[in-house]
């Protein structure tokens, strides 16, 4: 049996190591600088020397990139003042250095509540910096396959990216199922029905809806291959008026097409996938092929 490196289980640093060309990574604001969160410290909560995010420069398949990787095991990858500033700084560096792309390895539940205001503002700053990088011609790719997924503000940041590479273990959304269940009741969203949670937020639904541009298996090597493919093939789509009007029409059409849909199964069924109930068990490649075939037939 072959051994793969599970992207889901890997730490932020292990993910960076698996994605970047060997030995090519240089970290900015590394742990030695001990940029920890003063706000966590004030609440006697544990701090991390990198504040839960690794940022730096590397090459991927020889192309220069900037990488930020959130550590889901530290406070659920949540964004605080320092954490957010590191990502924003990286995006600002991209405007000047013009790398081939910025890779955001998102693994975050959103804003860090211990410093909620700072986190919320930081995410807004990341959003602006990200769009500035794109306007400067630098594409930004999100990679999602960690245990925290991409939620809250990081779910919005992800959807600003030019490409979204996901595994089916990865989740992408705004409000987590637990929050919805707490506020609206278990009938609205049963967060313990894990299979349902993934059918509503997981990689296969996001790929089917076109939000994830590439679906890969939970394998760091597959993530690297998808990133390389994205780097090689990505053509910058300008966010001009025409493009945004088209996006507006597409989002409206999706809502009209799914007036009552509350389960990914219905999306797969409506798309005409041969066995919608079997989708959760399909390997990423098989699922991609089925979607490609549907796209060709359409």
């Amino acid at each position: 049996m072959s051994r793969r490196i599970s992207y889901f289980e890997a730490s932020a640093r292990a993910r960076v190591a698996a994605l970047a060309d060997a030995g090519s990574f240089t970290e900015y604001c590394p742990p030695a600088q001990r940029r920890t969160s003063p706000h966590l410290a004030r609440l006697d909560a544990p701090v991390a020397f990198d504040d839960g995010v690794v940022v730096g420069a590397a090459t991927v398949d020889g192309r220069p990139v900037l990488i930020a990787a959130q550590e889901g095991k530290f406070n659920g990858g949540a964004v605080g003042e320092v954490h957010g500033a590191k990502i924003r700084g990286l995006l600002e560096r991209a405007v000047r250095e013009k790398p081939a792309a910025v890779l955001l390895l998102v693994d975050s539940g959103g804003v860090r509540l211990h410093e909620a205001n700072a986190g919320l503002i930081a995410i807004s700053e990341i959003m602006r910096a990200l769009m500035a990088a794109q306007a400067a011609g630098v594409p930004v790719f999100a990679l999602i396959g960690g245990s925290c997924g991409a939620f809250g503000g990081m779910g919005i940041v992800t959807r600003l990216c030019d490409e979204v590479i996901m595994s089916e273990e990865g989740r992408l959304g705004l409000s987590g199922p637990e929050v919805i269940e707490t506020v609206k009741g278990v009938g609205e969203f049963d967060s313990r029905d894990r299979a349902l949670v993934w059918r509503v937020t997981g990689g296969k639904l996001r790929r089917a809806l076109g939000e994830a541009t590439r679906l890969v298996d939970d394998d760091a090597v597959a993530f690297r291959a998808a990133a390389i493919a994205a780097l090689a093939r990505h053509r910058k789509a300008p966010a001009d008026l025409t493009a945004l009007k088209a996006a507006q029409a597409a989002l409206g059409a999706r809502r009209a097409a799914h007036p009552d849909t509350r389960d990914g199964l219905e999306v797969w069924r409506a798309m005409g996938l041969p066995r919608p109930e079997a989708v959760p068990m399909l390997a990423a490649d098989t699922f991609n092929q089925q979607l490609d075939q549907l796209a060709t037939e359409a």
Binding site: E168, E169, R192, D193, R194, A195, L196, W198, P280, M281
Partner: peptide
Amino acid sequence: GGLYDPPKKFRNW
């Protein structure tokens, strides 16, 4: 080979 059908609470896909 797809024969094992785990209870919901053990799934994350």
